[in-house]
Write a protein that binds this DNA or RNA. Structure first.
Lengths: 157, 157
DNA sequence: GTATCTGCAAATTTTTTGCCAGTAG
DNA sequence: CTACTGGCAAAAAATTTGCAGATAC
């Protein structure tokens, strides 16, 4: 039995090689940060964070690295029409929820209802479905509490 | 029984007034175009199309009008990480599917599985869900056919 | 050794803004 | 009449690109 790759560097190296790309310190730093955070950072946020771990890296390189990772399937690009794209390095299946109040994006603890979604595939006419993305909007715990507080205060006049 | 508003202008006027906004020719033109197309245009595409219907309108006004419509709930802003945002003026419930090959966005004939999605709401931890967005990725009829053709040609060597 | 990658800064693309005149209500 | 809008062009923000030196393999 061959040993499975285990470290994030091993995973990255394999994915890169499978796509004919080279393993570099910058890409490793970007990937390592992405895989370790749940904050769904923008390219700029990745840049700021990674700079503290790598001697030197440029914003352009961060953009290039992020696109490389997306191309290798190691990251997902998320957009919400609020200016900048966000990246998610978590590859296990999960959904996102975006807070309408503070714009934070949180991972939902609930898991993928794959079977239910797949029922829908049958009903998509001539469109051949290969994947889907389910996103929720609403209010995160903090903002929901604030809103409750606000409407109570209102009710009490 | 009061007469229900029926024309797109009436709908627009009511929605604008409900949000303290004024009814203008430019907003009407943008809304009318959005509501009548299934093409999910970018702001720039709206601009080009609307210019042929309205004496004069600027791109900046199109942007402002689109955001106004979104604010009034008469349009939905869609983003797909490929540069520019797209707008959808259809307010009836439906889902979108994006073709991975030609990037076209099509409306899915399938309807909203509201009950199934609502089951998920219960499992979203502390996040208070108010809405969701379900998007499919895959291949539209044309591109799916092309791909089939391509792989058959390959198989035949 | 060579093709690929990085860094830099400039270019491009998309979206927003300030200000004055025009218009809806 | 008065506040809100639209047009213009400039600004801002996000992302991409070209090129020369550095680096992975």
């Amino acid at each position: 039995m061959a040993t499975q790759p285990r470290s994030t560097d091993d995973i990255l190296r394999e994915a890169l090689e499978a796509n004919g790309q080279r393993f570099t310190e910058q890409r490793a730093a970007v990937y390592h940060f992405l895989a370790s955070t749940r904050s769904h950072p923008t390219a700029d946020e990745v840049y700021l964070q990674v700079r503290s771990a790598v001697p030197v890296i440029s914003l352009a390189t961060v953009y290039k690295s992020l696109e490389t990772l997306v191309g290798c399937g190691l990251a997902v690009k998320l957009t919400y029409g609020d200016g900048s794209a966000r990246y998610d390095g978590r590859t296990d299946p999960h959904h996102h929820a975006r807070c309408l109040s503070c714009s934070r994006i949180v991972d939902l603890p609930g898991q993928v209802p794959a079977e239910e979604i797949e029922e829908l595939h049958e009903d998509t006419g001539s469109f051949q479905v290969t994947g889907y993305r389910l996103e929720f909007t609403g209010y995160c715990a903090d903002c929901a509490a604030e809103r409750r507080g606000a409407s109570e205060a209102m009710a009490h006049g």
